[in-house]
């Protein structure tokens, strides 16, 4: 059971890490829609996300990816 959960942590962790790396804006929008005004840091009519927020999410995504790979290694290896 523990192995299955560790493997699940690995697979989902890698998935979230990749999402954060490739679509950081979408990850930010997931948290901010309905909480912050539209287009903050961007222009009117767009849902652009400030670059520093994207970078922060990408950094977290990198960490998530590494942790996912580590758990994958411990579950399989």
């Amino acid at each position: 059971m523990t192995e299955v959960r560790t493997l699940l942590a690995a697979v989902l962790g890698v998935l979230l890490g990749v999402l954060c790396l490739l679509a950081p804006g979408a990850v930010v929008r997931t948290q901010t829609l309905g909480r912050r005004p539209d287009g903050r840091g961007g222009e009117y009519g767009s849902d652009a996300v400030p670059t520093r927020w994207r970078r922060l999410v990408q950094a977290l995504g990198g960490g998530c990816l590494l942790l996912g790979l580590y758990f994958g290694y411990t579950a399989v290896g």
């Binding site: 999402l19 490739l22 950081p24 979408a26 670059t51 990408q58």
Partner: peptide
């Protein structure tokens, strides 16, 4: 900077 944006292929 386009560097950060370059990776954001789904954005």
């Amino acid at each position: 900077d386009d560097q950060a944006a370059a990776l954001c292929i789904f954005d």
